[in-house]
Amino acid sequence: MTKSVISNDSELSILKGISFTINAGESVAIMGTSGAGKSTLMGLLAGLDQPTSGSITLLNSTISEMDDEQRAKIRSESVGFVFQDFLLIPSLTALQNVTLPMLLRGNEDETSNNKKAKQLLQEVGLAGRETHLPTQLSGGEQQRVALARAFITQPKVLFADEPTGNLDQKTAAHIIELLFEMNKEQGTTLILVTHDANLAKRCQRTLIINDGQCQENPC
């Protein structure tokens, strides 16, 4: 699979012929220097973007041949995200932020959604903070809400983009613990973009992107 973009009227190759397979339940870290194409690769794997050539198969569906709407449907059913900037909706409470993916999925049972969300918030240590708005939470707490949000749909694949990039060391360690714990509990495939070698070591596999190529770094 390749990916290039047009920049200042010239074509810039970001990924130059990458090929690999990630099996169900695996945890994989994607590493590389800044600008190497880690986030581009993750966007492609999650179906947020389309490759220039080649194909991508996610959960037995060739997402590189699907249109926007079809890929959105797959994401709502089987994919979870954790972002570096948390990206919570400021006008929604912690509980409402967690139930949001259920709403996007068309899940109608408000009571059961709320019950599930409360349980997840409890798991991430935010019991009693359900009605708080993001502005009333610290960075670490916001990321914990984001974790709960990512797991509420019981996704088959979880994408995490530098999930601890905006947090201090202690909080980051706590979030990572939670992430791996929940991942293990739900048997989710985890694909993690990170600069942190220690974090990468906790994954079963590490893919290193360098000069548009992908190398597997055996753990």
Binding site: A46, V79, L87
Partner: peptide, 16 residues
Amino acid sequence: SETVSMLKSMGASRAW
């Protein structure tokens, strides 16, 4: 704009 991108990444359809 960022919120919409986030909603889309979580699977929001255009109709939604």
